[in-house]
Simulated scan of single mutants.
Amino acid sequence: MKSMKNLKTIALALLVVAGTITTTAQNKKINVEKSKITWVGKKVTGQHDGTISFNSGTLVFDGKKLKGGSFEVDMTSITVKDLEAGKGKEKLEGHLKADDFFGVDKFSTSILEFKTIASKGSDIYTVTADLTIKGKTLPVTFDLAIGAGSARTAFKVNRTKYGIQYGSGSFFDNLGDKAINDDFELTVSLAY
Protein backbone atom coordinates (compact mmCIF):
# COMPACT_ATOMS: atom_id res chain seq x y z
CA MET A 1 0.00 0.00 0.00
CA LYS A 2 2.81 2.39 0.87
CA SER A 3 4.48 1.90 -2.53
CA MET A 4 1.17 2.57 -4.28
CA LYS A 5 0.84 5.82 -2.30
CA ASN A 6 4.41 6.75 -3.26
CA LEU A 7 3.64 6.09 -6.95
CA LYS A 8 0.57 8.33 -6.77
CA THR A 9 2.65 11.06 -5.09
CA ILE A 10 5.35 10.78 -7.75
CA ALA A 11 2.77 10.80 -10.56
CA LEU A 12 1.07 13.88 -9.09
CA ALA A 13 4.44 15.64 -8.73
CA LEU A 14 5.27 14.86 -12.39
CA LEU A 15 1.91 16.30 -13.51
CA VAL A 16 2.52 19.50 -11.54
CA VAL A 17 6.03 19.86 -12.98
CA ALA A 18 4.81 19.10 -16.52
CA GLY A 19 2.06 21.69 -16.14
CA THR A 20 4.54 24.42 -15.23
CA ILE A 21 6.93 23.81 -18.13
CA THR A 22 6.35 26.45 -20.79
CA THR A 23 6.10 25.58 -24.44
CA THR A 24 9.28 26.28 -26.36
CA ALA A 25 9.16 28.49 -29.43
CA GLN A 26 8.71 26.79 -32.78
CA ASN A 27 10.43 28.26 -35.82
CA LYS A 28 8.44 27.81 -39.02
CA LYS A 29 10.56 28.48 -42.11
CA ILE A 30 8.66 29.88 -45.05
CA ASN A 31 8.56 28.12 -48.38
CA VAL A 32 10.30 30.75 -50.52
CA GLU A 33 8.91 29.24 -53.75
CA LYS A 34 5.27 29.48 -52.60
CA SER A 35 5.58 32.74 -50.62
CA LYS A 36 5.39 35.97 -52.56
CA ILE A 37 5.50 39.73 -52.34
CA THR A 38 3.58 41.84 -54.82
CA TRP A 39 4.17 45.58 -55.09
CA VAL A 40 2.25 48.49 -56.56
CA GLY A 41 3.83 51.86 -57.28
CA LYS A 42 1.53 54.69 -58.31
CA LYS A 43 2.15 57.88 -60.24
CA VAL A 44 -0.02 60.71 -61.51
CA THR A 45 -0.63 58.99 -64.87
CA GLY A 46 -1.18 55.44 -63.61
CA GLN A 47 0.61 52.69 -61.78
CA HIS A 48 2.95 49.72 -62.16
CA ASP A 49 2.99 46.43 -60.32
CA GLY A 50 5.23 43.44 -59.94
CA THR A 51 6.84 40.97 -57.60
CA ILE A 52 9.87 40.54 -55.35
CA SER A 53 11.14 37.19 -54.03
CA PHE A 54 12.22 36.06 -50.59
CA ASN A 55 15.69 34.67 -49.88
CA SER A 56 14.50 33.29 -46.53
CA GLY A 57 12.06 33.83 -43.71
CA THR A 58 10.90 32.42 -40.41
CA LEU A 59 7.80 32.88 -38.29
CA VAL A 60 8.17 32.05 -34.58
CA PHE A 61 5.27 30.56 -32.63
CA ASP A 62 4.73 29.64 -28.99
CA GLY A 63 2.03 27.03 -29.35
CA LYS A 64 -0.44 28.71 -31.72
CA LYS A 65 0.54 32.27 -30.77
CA LEU A 66 2.77 34.33 -33.04
CA LYS A 67 5.88 35.44 -31.14
CA GLY A 68 8.32 36.63 -33.80
CA GLY A 69 9.50 36.66 -37.36
CA SER A 70 12.35 37.69 -39.64
CA PHE A 71 12.66 37.79 -43.41
CA GLU A 72 15.26 38.50 -46.07
CA VAL A 73 14.11 39.77 -49.46
CA ASP A 74 16.13 39.43 -52.68
CA MET A 75 16.00 42.96 -54.10
CA THR A 76 17.70 41.80 -57.32
CA SER A 77 14.52 39.81 -58.06
CA ILE A 78 12.31 42.90 -58.63
CA THR A 79 10.12 42.26 -61.65
CA VAL A 80 7.46 44.32 -63.40
CA LYS A 81 4.29 42.39 -64.26
CA ASP A 82 2.08 45.00 -65.96
CA LEU A 83 4.45 45.63 -68.90
CA GLU A 84 5.46 43.19 -71.62
CA ALA A 85 8.99 42.41 -72.75
CA GLY A 86 10.10 44.98 -75.29
CA LYS A 87 7.39 47.45 -74.15
CA GLY A 88 9.28 49.15 -71.33
CA LYS A 89 9.44 46.18 -68.92
CA GLU A 90 13.24 45.84 -68.98
CA LYS A 91 13.78 49.62 -68.80
CA LEU A 92 11.56 49.99 -65.71
CA GLU A 93 13.09 46.93 -64.00
CA GLY A 94 16.56 48.34 -64.64
CA HIS A 95 15.55 51.73 -63.25
CA LEU A 96 14.02 50.17 -60.10
CA LYS A 97 17.28 48.26 -59.54
CA ALA A 98 19.43 51.38 -60.15
CA ASP A 99 20.66 53.83 -57.50
CA ASP A 100 17.69 56.18 -58.19
CA PHE A 101 15.51 53.57 -56.54
CA PHE A 102 16.72 50.45 -54.70
CA GLY A 103 20.43 50.35 -55.68
CA VAL A 104 20.53 46.56 -55.75
CA ASP A 105 24.21 46.38 -56.75
CA LYS A 106 25.10 47.73 -53.30
CA PHE A 107 21.93 46.74 -51.39
CA SER A 108 20.96 43.32 -52.74
CA THR A 109 18.75 42.45 -49.77
CA SER A 110 16.14 44.07 -47.57
CA ILE A 111 15.37 42.78 -44.08
CA LEU A 112 12.18 42.75 -42.00
CA GLU A 113 12.42 41.82 -38.30
CA PHE A 114 9.40 41.70 -35.98
CA LYS A 115 9.88 43.78 -32.82
CA THR A 116 6.46 43.88 -31.11
CA ILE A 117 3.40 41.71 -31.64
CA ALA A 118 -0.08 42.29 -30.21
CA SER A 119 -2.97 39.87 -30.71
CA LYS A 120 -6.16 41.35 -32.12
CA GLY A 121 -7.98 38.02 -31.75
CA SER A 122 -9.10 35.57 -34.44
CA ASP A 123 -5.49 34.86 -35.49
CA ILE A 124 -4.83 38.49 -36.44
CA TYR A 125 -1.82 40.27 -34.99
CA THR A 126 -0.64 43.87 -35.12
CA VAL A 127 3.09 43.72 -35.81
CA THR A 128 5.65 46.50 -35.55
CA ALA A 129 8.82 45.51 -37.36
CA ASP A 130 12.13 47.03 -38.39
CA LEU A 131 12.34 47.28 -42.18
CA THR A 132 15.79 47.80 -43.70
CA ILE A 133 15.93 49.13 -47.26
CA LYS A 134 19.11 50.54 -48.82
CA GLY A 135 20.90 50.13 -45.49
CA LYS A 136 18.40 52.30 -43.58
CA THR A 137 16.24 50.75 -40.84
CA LEU A 138 12.87 52.22 -39.86
CA PRO A 139 9.76 50.84 -38.14
CA VAL A 140 6.64 49.74 -40.04
CA THR A 141 3.35 48.56 -38.54
CA PHE A 142 0.86 46.19 -40.15
CA ASP A 143 -1.79 43.59 -39.36
CA LEU A 144 -0.83 39.98 -40.09
CA ALA A 145 -3.50 37.30 -40.52
CA ILE A 146 -2.37 33.76 -39.69
CA GLY A 147 -4.01 30.73 -41.31
CA ALA A 148 -3.24 27.03 -41.51
CA GLY A 149 0.33 27.06 -42.86
CA SER A 150 -0.08 30.58 -44.24
CA ALA A 151 0.03 34.24 -43.31
CA ARG A 152 -1.01 37.39 -45.16
CA THR A 153 -0.55 41.14 -44.82
CA ALA A 154 -0.66 44.34 -46.84
CA PHE A 155 0.92 47.68 -45.96
CA LYS A 156 2.42 50.83 -47.43
CA VAL A 157 6.04 51.97 -47.27
CA ASN A 158 7.12 55.58 -47.74
CA ARG A 159 10.13 55.20 -50.05
CA THR A 160 11.43 58.72 -49.37
CA LYS A 161 12.18 57.79 -45.75
CA TYR A 162 14.72 55.29 -47.17
CA GLY A 163 16.40 57.91 -49.36
CA ILE A 164 14.48 57.01 -52.55
CA GLN A 165 13.42 60.46 -53.71
CA TYR A 166 13.35 60.06 -57.50
CA GLY A 167 10.22 61.67 -58.94
CA SER A 168 8.83 62.61 -55.53
CA GLY A 169 6.64 65.71 -55.43
CA SER A 170 7.68 66.04 -51.78
CA PHE A 171 11.24 66.89 -52.88
CA PHE A 172 11.00 68.22 -56.43
CA ASP A 173 8.90 71.00 -57.93
CA ASN A 174 7.37 71.15 -61.40
CA LEU A 175 7.17 67.39 -61.93
CA GLY A 176 3.64 67.66 -63.31
CA ASP A 177 2.40 64.31 -64.58
CA LYS A 178 5.86 62.78 -64.00
CA ALA A 179 5.37 62.75 -60.19
CA ILE A 180 5.55 59.36 -58.47
CA ASN A 181 3.75 58.70 -55.18
CA ASP A 182 6.00 58.50 -52.13
CA ASP A 183 4.23 55.37 -50.84
CA PHE A 184 4.41 51.99 -52.50
CA GLU A 185 2.08 49.17 -51.52
CA LEU A 186 3.19 45.67 -50.55
CA THR A 187 0.97 42.59 -50.33
CA VAL A 188 2.71 39.62 -48.73
CA SER A 189 1.55 36.00 -48.81
CA LEU A 190 3.58 33.54 -46.75
CA ALA A 191 3.44 29.75 -46.96
CA TYR A 192 5.17 27.70 -44.26
Rank of each mutant, 00 (worst) to 15 (best):
A129L: 06
A129F: 06
D130T: 11
D130A: 04
D130I: 04
D130S: 06
L131D: 03
L131K: 09
L131G: 07
T132R: 14
T132G: 10
T132Y: 10
I133D: 06
I133M: 11
I133Q: 08
I133W: 04
K134A: 10
K134R: 15
K134P: 02
K134Y: 06
K134T: 10
K134N: 12
K134D: 07
G135M: 15
G135L: 15
G135A: 15
G135T: 15
K136G: 07
K136S: 14
K136D: 09
T137L: 11
T137K: 11
T137M: 10
T137F: 09
T137E: 02
T137H: 04
L138G: 13
L138H: 14
L138A: 13
L138C: 13
P139S: 06
P139C: 08
P139H: 06
P139D: 02
P139V: 05
P139M: 00
P139Y: 02
V140G: 06
V140T: 10
V140D: 00
V140I: 13
V140Y: 08
V140H: 03
T141R: 02
T141C: 01
T141Y: 00
T141A: 00
T141V: 01
T141K: 04
F142E: 04
F142Q: 00
F142A: 01
F142R: 08
F142L: 01
F142H: 07
F142S: 05
F142I: 06
F142M: 00
D143T: 03
D143R: 08
D143Q: 09
D143C: 05
D143L: 09
D143I: 05
L144T: 13
L144W: 12
L144R: 13
A145K: 15
A145T: 15
A145W: 12
A145L: 14
A145C: 13
I146Y: 12
I146K: 14
I146P: 12
I146T: 13
I146F: 12
I146M: 14
I146Q: 14
G147S: 03
G147I: 06
G147H: 09
G147V: 11
G147R: 12
G147W: 09
G147A: 11
G147P: 09
G147K: 13
A148W: 00
A148T: 15
A148H: 13
A148V: 14
A148G: 13
A148Y: 10
G149M: 13
G149A: 11
S150W: 04
S150R: 01
S150M: 05
A151L: 03
A151D: 03
A151Y: 06
A151W: 02
A151P: 05
A151S: 00
R152I: 11
R152A: 10
R152D: 10
R152Y: 10
R152T: 10
T153I: 01
T153M: 09
T153E: 04
T153R: 00
T153C: 07
T153S: 00
A154K: 15
A154E: 12
F155C: 04
F155D: 09
F155Y: 09
F155T: 02
K156R: 14
K156V: 05
K156Y: 02
K156I: 09
K156H: 08
V157Q: 04
V157Y: 02
V157S: 08
V157F: 01
N158C: 04
N158L: 03
N158I: 04
N158S: 00
R159H: 05
R159I: 03
R159A: 00
R159F: 02
R159L: 01
R159T: 06
R159E: 05
T160F: 08
T160Q: 07
T160I: 10
T160G: 00
T160H: 00
